[in-house]
Nucleic acid binder design. Sequence first.
DNA 1: TTGACATAACACCATTTGGTTTTATATAAT
DNA 2: ATTATATAAAACCAAATGGTGTTATGTCAA
Lengths: 105, 105
Amino acid sequence: MSTAQNYDVFQAIADPTRREVLHLLLDNNLSIAEITSHFDMSRTAIAKHLHVLEKANLVNGTRSGREKIYRLHPEPLTELRDWLSYYERFWNNKLLKLKFVVENE
Amino acid sequence: MSTAQNYDVFQAIADPTRREVLHLLLDNNLSIAEITSHFDMSRTAIAKHLHVLEKANLVNGTRSGREKIYRLHPEPLTELRDWLSYYERFWNNKLLKLKFVVENE
DNA sequence: TTGACATAACACCATTTGGTTTTATATAAT
DNA sequence: ATTATATAAAACCAAATGGTGTTATGTCAA
C-alpha cells in the first residue's frame, strides 16, 4: 500500500472503505479527522486510503491551516463508466431479444 | 487468491487481466486454453482468475467433454452501474452550472 | 513560548494476491 | 489399452495490501 506507485480507478474503488469515503465526500468536503470519525479505524489508515484515492485523482486535498480538507473529484470515474458501457450494450441487446420474443407471441 | 471466499464485483474487476478476460468473453464463449492463448501467463494463473470471476458470478463455466467453456454473465455489473449512477448525477450538476455561466455572458 | 492539535512520515506486521511448478484426474483418440 | 490433452488441485513464493503504533513537523491558541 505505502509503496504503491500507479493506482488506477479500478483498484482505488475496489476497497469498500474507500468507496465509503467517496460517498461521504459527495455531500461535504471533509478533513481527515472528520472522515476518520465515520470509521472504526485509525487516522493513519484513513490517511493512507486518502492517498490512494488522491493518486487515482478521485479526491484532492488542500491544506487549510493545520487541517487538510478533501474534496471529491469524480471525473476519473468516466473511465469506469466507459468500460461499463461496453457491457450495458450487451444487456440492452438481451432486453431487445426478450422484447422481440414477446412481440412474436 | 486461492484462499479467498467472498469476491465482490469491485474486487473482481480491479485486476486488468480479469477485465481483459471479460472483454474476450464478450464476443465468444471460450475454454480455459483458448483464453490462456491471449495472455503471457500460465494456464493455471488464468484458471485462478476465472475462479475469481466465477465467484463474483461474472462468468459461468460449463464442462463440455474435457474442456470447460466459460461464458460471460454480466448481470452483477449492475451493482457497479448503480454505484456509479450516484456520481453521474454529480457530473450532470457540474455541467448544468457550467451552462448557466455561459448563458450569463 | 508553551501546549494542544492535525497531519505526515516511518517502521513494522499479518494476510491476501498473483503468479509459479508439480502432481493428479478425467476425457478423447488411436 | 495407451497416449495425449484439458482441467483441477496443491504446495510454494514474492510482492502488494490494509492495518497498526511511534515519531516528527507544522499550526493555532492561550
